[in-house]
């Protein structure tokens, strides 16, 4: 086999495997959508923390300053907690419909 032939075969195999990857993407739209949602909400939360929570002022009084800092951390953690909870429930919801009930019905009918 010539160098040209083996090189073209090599690139063809790479091209074929890329095509195979693309053929699988339609199956994954829901999951990619969920990934996008997770990322977008995370960025959104960061924006809210930056533009909202970080505006809580600092105080020169030590006790009050500690209270404000605690409030900032608490609110930020609350948002992160909400993000994780939403992520958890959406994953659960999306994965619930993995064809279990349908399979059972088909089996019963057969």
């Amino acid at each position: 086999m010539s160098v040209l032939e083996s090189t073209s075969k090599f690139f063809k195999s790479i091209g074929d495997s890329i095509v195979k990857y693309f053929q699988l993407i339609p199956r994954l739209w829901k999951i990619i959508g969920l990934e996008t949602f997770i990322f977008a909400t995370f960025v959104g939360i960061c924006a809210v923390i930056s533009e909202g929570i970080m505006l809580i002022p600092s105080s020169t009084l030590p006790g009050l300053n500690f209270l404000f800092a605690g409030l900032k951390v608490g609110l930020s953690l609350l948002l992160v907690g909400m993000w994780l909870t939403a992520w958890y429930f959406l994953t659960k919801r999306l994965m619930r419909n993995d064809g279990k009930k349908e399979t059972e019905i088909i089996e019963e009918e057969v």
Binding site: K20, Y21, L24, R27, L28, K92, D98
Partner: peptide
């Protein structure tokens, strides 16, 4: 258990090699 594999094979059975590819894509 509900798994990522379960979601990937929701639309029909898939070969092991292709499931590995879907994980890579994700």
């Amino acid at each position: 258990p509900i798994t990522l594999v379960g979601l990937v094979i929701q639309k029909g059975p898939l070969h092991e090699k292709n499931i590995a590819k879907t994980f890579n894509i994700l």
